[in-house]
Write a protein that binds this DNA or RNA. Structure first.
Length: 212
DNA sequence: CGTCCGATGAACT
DNA sequence: GTTCATCGGACGT
């Protein structure tokens, strides 16, 4: 049984680093007796309070955003556009509003059930999991998992450790779906494993260094 | 579909 | 004057 990422992985304050370090790790769901797994190949960082794109911009606390302020190592799952469940990893110590959104995975285990949950899309098609709503649909992750710990082997959603992806194999670019007007700057806080065909968009700008 | 904020107005002090 | 409940619509990592 693969080791899970420890608390210390999540409670680091640098969500940009955690988002990059999540690449290559293995997201696991064990739901309704079905195990599915996939390699995380694309993430985005959301760093409140200063991040206007975050639900917790300005450290705004509402019933929905409370999860974001929890201690790192749990899930933040919310509904987007009334249809998509989006899975985020809460990071940083309690009280910090930092999360990493999982946008795409490379499926490795439970391909048949993932295909079934995705309306019969063939398990070798990148469209199976190349988007945040597709990942949660394939893995049956939903709002019922909001706030749950990722740290226990008994958890329905958890993340296994794996060999780190070298920084030279990570490309970054602007986040998806953010109104540029609302975002004061075009921060390259979306991270992908370079040349991995399971990510959600074609190759974009390459940055040697992360601003901020 | 849910969330949330601003508008509206009632009730209270 | 202030606070609170309710409503409506805008919008969504």
């Amino acid at each position: 049984m693969a080791a899970l990422l420890p608390t210390s992985f999540y409670i680091r304050d640098d969500v940009l680093q955690v988002s990059q370090d999540l690449l290559g790790k293995v997201l696991v769901s064990q739901i309704d007796g079905q195990i599915t797994k996939g390699i995380i190949v694309e993430t985005e960082a959301y760093r409140a309070p200063e991040d206007r794109a975050s639900h917790a911009y300005g450290n705004k606390r509402t019933p929905r955003t409370e999860t974001i302020f929890q201690k790192g190592g749990c899930a933040y799952v919310y509904l987007c556009y009334g249809i998509h469940q989006l899975f985020n990893v809460v990071t940083g110590p309690a009280g910090t509003a930092h999360v990493a959104l999982v946008r795409a995975i490379q499926p490795t285990d439970g391909l048949q059930i993932m295909s079934l949950r995705r309306g019969g899309i063939a398990s070798d098609q990148v469209s199976l999991c190349n988007g945040p709503g597709k990942c949660t649909e394939a893995m049956a992750i939903s709002k019922v998992h909001d706030g749950i710990s990722l740290l226990n082997q008994s958890s329905q959603v958890r993340i296994e450790d794996a060999v780190p992806v070298h920084s030279s194999a990570i490309i970054s670019g602007p986040r998806v779906g953010i109104k540029t007007a609302a975002e004061s700057s075009n921060l390259p806080w979306r991270f992908r494993i370079a040349a991995n065909r399971w990510t959600s968009k074609p190759d974009q700008v390459y940055y040697d260094e992360w601003p901020l």
